[in-house]
Nucleic acid binder design. Structure first.
Length: 245
RNA sequence: AGUCAUG
């Protein structure tokens, strides 16, 4: 019957991944073949628990058993690898995906950008962003946040800032999170002046700073010992009815 | 039915 149902159900909660894995083993003993949906559930479950080698092994198993691969399986695997700082490996998986003729989608690139951000690969991230264009895959606000974060995390805050200006000029979709990712990159390089201007601009444009915005800025104030701006920011926070951390 | 962004 439906082992699929059991496996999928247990994959939802990260605590129960081992149980899901057991059910899958039973499934296999009975000669049933898990499908791509089952595998992607298990791969993302392994990812949540840091079991990246197991996640990779699941892909190998799919290949051995000739289970049809799809974009979600690869996305789940890239995510699993990326979140545990295996950006290089995530990129290799991306290449294999293309080699096997599975078309990457917008999520694939978002996930890759996050993976590369975690290992500080700004240059590679920019290449991915450009490749996306070439393949005719439309970026979203999630993509913009990810690429700006990737640049900032890789010590390219000024490049991030330039890209941000270009996107704003083109009136691309934006969100508070996107502004925050830019601020994070500027903060990493102790660029208090620029960060504060960006903060003011963000407000003028109608994007409400949130708790993350203030957290980034207040940490930066501490790093550069700017007490005056701490006072100003705290008063802005109160005006916005946000609690200090 | 399964995969994404900011401290």
């Amino acid at each position: 019957w439906s082992y699929h149902y059991l496996v999928h159900g247990y994959c939802k909660s990260s605590k129960r991944i081992s149980r899901a894995m057991r059910y899958m083993k039973e499934m296999k003993k009975r000669g049933l073949t898990p499908d791509a949906v089952t595998y992607s559930c298990l791969i993302s479950g392994c990812g949540r628990r840091g079991k990246t080698d197991e996640a990779l092994e699941l892909l190998e198993e799919m290949k051995r058993k000739n289970v049809a691969l799809d974009v979600v399986v690869f996305n789940a695997l890239i995510h699993a690898l990326g979140r545990w700082k295996r950006g290089k490996r995530a990129f290799l998986v991306f290449q294999e995906m293309r080699y096997r003729g599975i078309q990457p989608d917008e999520w694939t690139f978002n996930l890759l950008l996050n993976a590369l951000a975690k290992v500080g690969e700004a240059q590679a991230g920019l290449k991915m962003f450009n490749m996306m264009k070439r393949l005719g895959i439309a970026p979203s606000v999630v993509t913009y946040t990810a690429v700006i974060d990737c640049l900032g995390a890789g010590g390219q805050a000024l490049a991030a800032y330039k890209l941000h200006n270009k996107l704003l000029a083109r009136r691309e979709a934006y969100s508070t999170r996107t502004w925050n990712s830019l601020l994070k990159g500027l903060a990493k390089e102790d660029r208090m002046g620029m960060a504060y201007l960006v903060y003011q601009r963000m407000r003028r444009r109608g994007y409400e700073p949130d708790r993350v915005t203030y957290s980034i800025l207040l940490d930066l104030c501490t790093a550069v010992r700017d007490l005056k701006k701490v006072v100003q920011l705290q008063s802005d926070m109160r005006a916005a009815e946000l609690e200090p951390d």
